[in-house]
Design a protein around this nucleic acid. Structure first.
Length: 608
DNA sequence: CAGAAACGGGG
DNA sequence: GTGTACGTTTCTG
């Protein structure tokens, strides 16, 4: 039996002898540092939870008769903090879950199904307490080959695991990053891959690469000149394979660079077998768009990341770069690229500069923004590839799914199409806004609440699992058994939240904020600059996560969606700021402008 | 006016 | 892949 430590950068599963085998892709830590490794784990089984209706033993018999699962276990789980008996029903293959769940739901002794909509690799990470981009310990047998793995990389290790890996270290790791960018001949507006050739491939890395591959530019020092477009792509493929990068980044590369590269490579007969397992570049359907993936080499499309990372009117590479670094980029108008290419003069030189500049700028943006996404990966515990493409509400949700598993709570089901439509019609009132009084004001006093909404969620225990339901309103409450002192009652709608126990989401937000304070304290104490910066990124990631969680109650795809909670938060928020304004007025401060969690006042002691 | 369709980024 | 973005603006009936 062999032991290894590895950084897990990517995860999937394949089917081997009709059973799922999890594949962990990554780099070896310790001896043979940096070498590629694929770990195979065939020990994990797909399952879902059944909430039985009536007699549990009869329910088991009915499921065994009708569905033929491989195994059923009885267990107790909490559902919105209420202990209930559940059946954990195991299947042979992950695809049996969607195949059989409708049949299962229709059984007379089945009340409800839970956790039937969690992708297999995500379930694996959660149940085994593994965090991608961290270091895990492996035990197993090294094997020479395995079906579905066809690599010509001599140093690739394949390890068949005896048992699931154990987390060893979830600390920040350094990763090698390659950025790339294509320039394409485009006489008729946007290029057409059937006709218009690639004229330049820019490549820049945080390991020192900074070049452009092209069929022209012989006398420019950063250009590698080749004799054809085919050789250009082959040289780029070789560059990727030789350097064994962890991450490859582009700008809108999901929708432009990678699809274009695939199309041209196909026409020219070049293999894009860039995967660690020898597989080629693939495209995953994500809604109405595609995501380019390479096994074991994480592709990040920075355009998607930047749209979440900042709030701008436009997200062109030029605009984003200008905003982040305050510098202008070299500009070549997109529709004139073919003219610059044909000019064979200073304009051609300028096009080469532009190509390199786009590539280097993309790398700089990656170096600036990927650390916080790596931290979110470490906290949320889902693959980096997924994190960079997830809406923030989804990041918060997968974090909560993991936290629910840790405290033995079952997770609410994902909303159905019908749920969305219903939820879309529920529109909440936002924060209180007092339109500013027009004019120049002097000697203003500013007041604002520090993280108003997260504080309210915690202090008023706003959570769907502690919301009183039988009677929605306090006004119509006549039940003598209920003591109003046991509840926080929201203004306007009079929703009632139990004071105890602590709600699931308030307790998670509380832990996130406590952890953030702990990190901020450590950051202030630290004298090491690098450590200080790392801790700063960590606390920023936690701040983002906490700030996301107050908005998600109103996010229609959220598993813990609660219109009542969303309404209660903003209603309490409006009440708080109005109370604070009234309080200030008693001391002669008159608000001239207010918005959600803060206001500006003028001091006018004479005004009655 | 409401619901459907288009759009973003990229060259 | 235990699957089908997303939020906003513009168009259309």
């Amino acid at each position: 039996m062999e032991k290894r430590k590895m950084i897990v950068t990517d995860i999937d599963y394949i089917t081997y002898e009709d059973k799922p085998v999890i594949r962990l892709f990554g780099k070896i830590k310790g001896d043979k540092e940096g070498q590629n490794i694929i770990a195979l784990d065939g020990t994990f089984e797909p399952y879902l939870y059944v909430m039985p209706e009536g007699n549990i033993e009869e329910c088991i018999l009915q499921i065994e008769d009708e569905i033929e699962p491989i195994r059923i276990e009885k267990l107790s789980k909490k559902d919105f903090q209420v202990k209930k008996d559940f059946l954990k029903v195991f299947f042979k293959h992950p695809q049996d879950v969607p195949k059989k769940r409708d049949m299962l739901r229709d059984l007379s002794l089945v009340q409800d199904l839970r956790e039937h909509d969690i992708p297999f690799y995500r379930r694996y990470l959660i149940d085994n307490d593994l965090y991608p981009m961290g270091v895990v310990e492996l035990e197993g047998e090294l094997i020479d080959s395995f079906p579905t793995i066809d690599s010509n990389n001599e140093s690739l290790e394949i390890m068949k695991l005896d048992h699931s890996p154990v987390m060893f270290d979830n600390a920040y790791q350094n990763f090698s990053i390659l950025s790339f960018d294509l320039e394409v001949y485009n006489p008729k507006g946007m290029p057409n891959a059937d006709k218009d050739e690639i004229i330049m491939i820019g490549a820049a890395s945080n390991t020192g690469i900074s070049k452009v591959i092209s069929t022209k530019g012989e006398d420019i020092d950063f250009v590698e000149t080749v004799s054809s477009e085919k050789e250009m792509i082959e040289s780029f493929v070789k560059l990727i394979k030789d350097n064994n990068f962890d991450i490859i980044v582009g700008y809108n590369s999901d929708n432009f660079d990678f699809p274009y590269l695939r199309d041209r490579a196909k026409i020219l007969g070049v293999d894009l077998d860039l995967g660690m397992d020898g597989s080629s570049l693939k495209f995953l359907r994500r809604g109405y768009t595609n995501a380019a993936t390479i096994k074991g080499l994480i592709h990040v499309d920075l355009y998607l990341v930047m749209r979440r990372y900042m709030n701008l009117d436009r997200y062109t590479l030029e605009r984003v770069y200008q905003e982040l670094f305050g510098e202008e980029k070299i500009d070549v108008p997109g529709d004139k690229i073919f003219m610059y290419w044909d000019s064979d003069s200073e304009e051609l030189d300028r096009l080469f500069d532009y190509s390199l500049d786009d590539t280097v700028s993309t790398l700089k943006i990656a170096e600036q923004t990927l650390p916080i996404n790596l931290e979110l990966t470490r906290v949320v515990g889902q693959p980096f590839f997924d994190i960079t493409r997830m809406a923030t509400g989804q990041q918060a949700e997968w974090y909560l799914v993991r936290k629910a598993f840790e405290i033995n709570e079952v997770v609410p089901n994902k909303p159905t199409g019908k749920d969305f439509i219903n939820r879309k019609h529920e529109s909440n009132v936002g924060g209180y806004v007092k339109e500013p009084e027009v004019g120049l004001h002097e000697n203003l006093v500013q007041f604002d609440f520090r993280s108003l909404y997260p504080s309210l969620i915690i202090s008023k225990n706003i959570s769907p699992d502690v919301l009183y339901h039988e009677d929605d309103s306090f006004d119509s409450l006549v039940d003598d058994e209920i003591d109003k002192d046991d509840y926080f009652i929201s203004p306007e709608h009079h929703y009632m939240f139990k004071k105890s126990p602590k709600g699931f989401i308030p307790s998670v937000i509380g832990n996130v904020l406590d952890e953030r304070i702990r990190i901020k304290t450590a950051m202030k104490k630290s004298t090491d600059y690098t450590e200080k910066m790392m801790l700063d990124v960590q606390q920023q990631a936690l701040k983002r996560l906490a700030n996301t969680m107050y908005g998600v109650y109103g996010y229609s795809r959220f598993r813990w969606y609660s219109f009542e909670c969303a309404q209660a938060i903003t209603a309490w928020g409006r009440e708080n700021i109005k109370d604070a304004m009234k309080f200030a007025e008693d001391y002669g401060f008159y608000a001239i402008y207010a918005d959600t969690d803060g206001f500006y006042c003028k001091y006018c002691p004479d005004k009655d």
